[in-house]
Structure formats: structure tokens, C-alpha cells
Simulated scan of single mutants.
Amino acid sequence: MSTKTNSGNFFEDFRIGQEIRHATPRTVTEGDIALYTALYGPRFAFNSSAEFARNMGLESAPLDDLAAFHVAFGKTVPDVSLNAVANLGYAGGRFGVPVFPGDTISTASTVIGLKENSNKQTGVVYVRSIGTNQRAEMVVDYVRWVMVRKRDVEAVVPEQKVPELPGSVAASDLVIPAGLTTAGYDVIAAGSPYLWDDYQVGEKIDHVDGTTIEEAEHMMATRLWQNTAKVHFNQHTEGQGRFGRRLIYGGHIISIARALSFNGLANAFKVVAINGGRHVNPTFAGDTIYAWSEVLEKLDIPGRTDVGALRLRLVALKNQPAAGFTLKGEDGKDDPAVVLDFDYTVLMARKG
């Protein structure tokens, strides 16, 4: 048989400092926006209404920031995580210029860390990935780490290093869209009267609603983002694996939880940073996702009095409502119901 096909990189194929330009640039369309809405149900006015966005100084309603993240992320899968066991976490992520229909996103990655696991069958690969538009402007820039299978358990990786991961993104490093204004911000159209001033550090918000994941939905999403990781789409191979079925793409859970957060954070109109995050436990079709948020920090934006930032902890649970839930069991370990622990920063209009 021909060997022209791509079997993906295994752990021993990576090297510290390796730079990878990923294939298949993706032009975003109105269809992507419609599918994103159908899959996750977000209701943020900034991304839903062209008129709302124009009143805030943008040319039109931009693509949801997490949709832009998924497009950029999907490009990396054939080179970074085609042979992954699991995507483990994120750090130091920033969103750049807004993405509009007609923009084309490309992604490149640099390997910044490698650590073989003690079982010698897998290792963790750390990469920094940058998505850019057709003008070479940064759309999203983030670090992630993923557990990848080895092709040969006896293979030796010449250099290993666990990188120092970026901490939370400082207010001065957040990218504010050019021309953004909240002078005429319409809280009625946005769906909530609560602005930046109304939230307090330590406040916890139960987003109340739940969303059950259907098999067809997560498969459609995996294909929409051109995510080719076997753990998500191939039941023939994954049915024989550890879990006996396909795993839900972790980004799918992030977008569901973010959409659920509208109920309580409707005026958190734009995601500007991913400070950190873990996919704590696997999720499968048929699971119902609930979410709650905690306000970790209130940030002033340098030179701005009309908009502020909230650093939030977003926790997603499967088959377990958030009310009264404790994250850790008596043994100090993560509860099996926790599927996502996500630290991110949003923009929100201020009063006055």
C-alpha cells in the first residue's frame, strides 16, 4: 500500500523548538456562525446582532471568540494531537483582532516542552500556537499541552523539558478591539442589567441551566472545526480503547459552558484571555453539562473608564447541577462530575 498518507506525529517525533506551520487555512463564513449558534446556543448580543456590534464601534458582529479559537485549534490537530490520548490544559491565551465572515485563519505552532510519562507509552507535548488572519494579525495566541502516544515504547527523546507556563494575562496585555466603545451600551438588548460594577471578587454564580450533548452534535462540531483526532470521531478504534467510546472534544465543553454562562453574565460580551484551564474528566454523548462561575479578579483597563475586565473561573459539571456542589471529594481528589475548570477573562461595560 502507498505510504503517502499522514499517520500523525507520535511523542518521539517532537523536538524542543520545533516549528510547525499547519495546513488548511480556513475562511470563516456566515454559515460557521449559524452552525456555532445551533451547536452551543450562545445568546451574547455582541456576536448575535450586527446593529448591536456597530453601536459598539465595530464594523459588524464578530465571530464568537471561542469559535475563532476552535478554528485555529483544529488546524493543529493533524500535526500535534492526531495520536493524542487527551488534551490536558491551556495557559497564557490572548485573543487579538476580531474575526469577521470572509477572514481566513491560519495557525502555526512551536514545541516548547516535552515530558515522557513513566509508563513509557505516552508523553506530554507542550506547544504554543498562534492563529493569524489574512493580514498576519494575531487572532488567538495560546499554550496547550496534550498527552500523545509513542509509536515505539523503546524510543528515546533526546531532550525533555517542562516549560514554565504563563500565568494570568495582565490587564495591560489584553487586546481591546480598535474603536470599541460602550457609550451607548444597551443592557435591555444585551439581556441583563448587571454591569462590571455589580460583580464582586469571590462571588459565585450558578448558571442554572443544563445542556445534554447528543452524539450527532459533537460529531458535527468535531468535523466543523476540522479536528481529526481519532479519540473524537472513530468509534471503530476508540471502542476498543480505555473508555470504549469516543471522547467529546474538550473545546466543545468550553463552548457549552460559556453559552450557559449567559444566564448570570449576559454582559460579558467578549473573551479576551484564557489564563488557564484543565479538562478534568472525560465527557461522552448523553452527558448533561451544568456550569457555575466565580469572579476571581476585577481588572481596570489602562486608559479606559467605560469598560472593565472580569477574570472568571468557569467550572463545568456532568450530570450534576451546580447548586451546593463541592469540587473535591473527601480524599482531596477532583470529583468525577467535574469536566472543566477554566480560568478566563472577559470584557464588560462599566456604569457611568
Rank of each mutant, 00 (worst) to 15 (best):
165 L>M: 14
165 L>W: 08
167 G>A: 14
168 S>P: 15
169 V>H: 05
170 A>F: 14
171 A>T: 03
171 A>R: 11
174 L>W: 12
175 V>H: 12
176 I>V: 10
179 G>T: 07
180 L>T: 01
182 T>G: 15
184 G>F: 10
184 G>C: 03
185 Y>C: 05
185 Y>S: 08
186 D>M: 09
187 V>Y: 03
188 I>V: 15
189 A>W: 00
189 A>R: 15
190 A>Y: 04
190 A>G: 05
193 P>G: 01
194 Y>V: 01
194 Y>E: 10
194 Y>D: 09
197 D>C: 09
198 D>E: 11
200 Q>I: 01
200 Q>R: 12
200 Q>A: 13
201 V>C: 06
202 G>I: 06
203 E>V: 07
204 K>D: 05
205 I>M: 05
205 I>P: 01
206 D>R: 02
207 H>R: 00
209 D>S: 13
209 D>E: 13
209 D>M: 04
211 T>C: 07
211 T>E: 03
211 T>K: 11
212 T>F: 07
213 I>F: 09
213 I>Y: 10
215 E>G: 01
216 A>F: 08
217 E>G: 04
217 E>A: 13
219 M>A: 08
220 M>C: 05
221 A>M: 04
224 L>R: 04
225 W>C: 03
226 Q>D: 03
229 A>H: 12
229 A>D: 00
229 A>T: 11
229 A>L: 09
229 A>R: 00
230 K>V: 15
231 V>L: 13
231 V>W: 00
233 F>E: 06
233 F>L: 15
234 N>G: 02
234 N>C: 11
236 H>A: 15
237 T>H: 12
238 E>Q: 12
238 E>Y: 10
238 E>I: 03
240 Q>Y: 14
241 G>L: 04
242 R>N: 06
243 F>A: 04
244 G>T: 05
244 G>C: 04
244 G>A: 01
245 R>K: 14
247 L>N: 10
247 L>M: 15
248 I>V: 14
249 Y>M: 15
249 Y>S: 13
252 H>L: 12
253 I>M: 07
257 A>W: 04
257 A>E: 07
258 R>A: 09
259 A>M: 06
259 A>F: 10
260 L>Q: 05
265 L>G: 00
265 L>Q: 02
265 L>D: 00
265 L>I: 00
267 N>G: 06
268 A>P: 04
269 F>V: 03
269 F>Y: 04
271 V>M: 11
273 A>Q: 02
274 I>F: 11
275 N>V: 05
277 G>F: 01
279 H>Y: 14
280 V>F: 05
283 T>E: 04
286 G>R: 08
287 D>W: 10
